[in-house]
């Protein structure tokens, strides 16, 4: 639920949380990202960094350089001029007022053995592997937030037919690039990790590569689409990604 007005919560004396709601919801997340973008466009001395999440923006600040009241007044001013929550054309956008909308087309192989859990997930969902892959690749996702580990980016927009509970017991570590579904979300694995999510595909793309510029591929708010590729294409793209190339396609639409 979207709060009638944002809540301002202290997380210690050096972090202020602007909470817009209490659920995973594109409308709430758009408000979070709009304030994040506005603060990035109009920075003030004393803000250290911002962390956008599904439903809130955490503003880390140095209270000896910027008082809580001055920070709050600045953010409130930006909310008044930038958020325009009633405006449908703004609400449909993923980024902030000055951010261009970015759409990534990310290659994904949905074939076993790379899609190692696709059959198991299909059984839980009563879907064939082919239908599951078609539904996953047919949806448009939004990068809601990063969390958990470097490059772990939670994607909203999973079709309802693919929503399934996480496993009761975690599966073994997922490989780099595993494309996962769990709860109502999708995720690309940026570091091998045991997880309760299902591996339904694998992308050759690296969401986080220390030696690449930029090291992180997605910004919160980016739109993402998966493009099915066969195993031969996967191997080719993986080889290129290993040499530091970005193998996804980026389309940028200016919001003029």
């Amino acid at each position: 639920m979207l709060h009638p007005a944002p809540r301002w919560l202290d997380a210690g004396e050096a972090a202020l949380v602007v909470e817009f709601g209490d659920s995973v919801d594109p409308t709430i997340n758009a408000r979070v990202l709009a304030l994040d973008a506005a603060l990035r466009a109009a920075p003030i001395e004393g803000i250290v960094e911002m962390v956008p999440t599904y439903r809130s923006l955490m503003i880390h600040y140095e209270p000896l350089a910027l008082s809580r009241s001055a920070l709050m007044a600045h953010a409130q001013g930006l909310l008044r001029t930038s958020a325009a929550p009633g405006s449908p054309d703004r609400r449909s956008r993923s980024g902030g007022i000055d951010a261009p909308m970015r759409l990534w087309t990310v290659p994904c192989c949905y074939e076993p053995p790379l899609a190692e859990d696709i059959t198991a997930a299909g059984e839980v969902l009563s879907l064939s592997s082919e239908r599951l892959a078609e539904l996953h690749a047919g949806a448009l996702y939004r990068a809601y937030m990063y969390g958990f580990a470097p490059g772990w980016c939670y994607l909203g927009g999973l079709p309802a037919a693919l929503a399934l509970p996480r496993r009761a017991a975690p599966r073994g570590p997922t490989p780099w690039g595993a494309v996962l579904i769990g709860g109502g979300l999708s995720l690309i694995c940026a570091a091998p990790m045991p997880t309760g999510w299902y591996v339904i595909g694998r992308t050759p793309e690296r969401l986080f590569a220390l030696d690449r510029d930029p090291p992180f591929l997605f910004e919160a708010g980016d739109a993402i689409r998966f493009e099915p590729v066969g195993r031969a294409a996967f191997a080719r793209l993986e080889e290129r990604a290993g040499r530091g190339a970005i193998v996804s396609r980026l389309m940028t639409e200016s919001m003029a």
């Binding site: 210690g12 972090a15 659920s23 999440t53 809130s56 969390g147 958990f148």
Partner: peptide, 30 residues
């Protein structure tokens, strides 16, 4: 709760009721 930001020194209480103070190696959200 739906994940939100975690600051240094945040005292989180998971389901078992035993508090955890999040220190230098905390995740940025929780």
């Amino acid at each position: 709760i739906v994940s939100d930001g975690v600051a240094l020194g945040a005292i989180q209480v998971p389901g078992d009721g035993a508090p955890l103070v999040l220190m230098a190696d905390r995740q940025p959200t929780g």
